[in-house]
């Protein structure tokens, strides 16, 4: 369906990043239905810096979480 997609698990479901995300949104929904999964929300959007950070590190930069841990060197 997607030539070159990146998939990340989110708290409420998944997010798919791809050049053709907008064109294939419907196909994705159909695929979910065929797989017996109920979609409760759906959104197509431009990437944010959160996505940038996720792409680089494979992890989100959660400032609140970071706040709790005192940096050793900083």
């Amino acid at each position: 369906m997607f030539e070159d997609a990146a998939i990340a698990e989110t708290e409420t479901g998944i997010s798919v990043t791809a050049e053709t995300a907008r064109q294939h949104g419907t196909d994705l929904l159909v695929a979910f239905r065929d797989a017996g999964l109920t979609v409760t929300g759906f959104n197509v959007r431009a990437p944010t810096l959160d996505d940038v950070f996720l792409a680089i590190t494979g992890d989100e930069l959660d400032a609140d979480q970071v706040d709790a841990q005192e940096g050793v060197r900083n």
Binding site: D4, A6, I7, E9, T10, T12, G13, I14, S15, V16, T17, A18, E19, T20, A21, R22, G25, L28, F32, A35, L37, T38, V39, T40, G41, F42, N43, V44, R45, A46, P47, T48, L49, D51, V52, A55
Partner: peptide, 24 residues
């Protein structure tokens, strides 16, 4: 943001993590 590549589809799903993992 451009280098992330394309756009992002956020999908909210009903059900547990295990289902997502299987699908993934």
């Amino acid at each position: 943001k451009r280098r992330v590549g394309g756009e992002v589809l956020d999908v909210e799903l009903e059900g547990g993590e295990s289902e997502h993992a299987e699908w993934k």
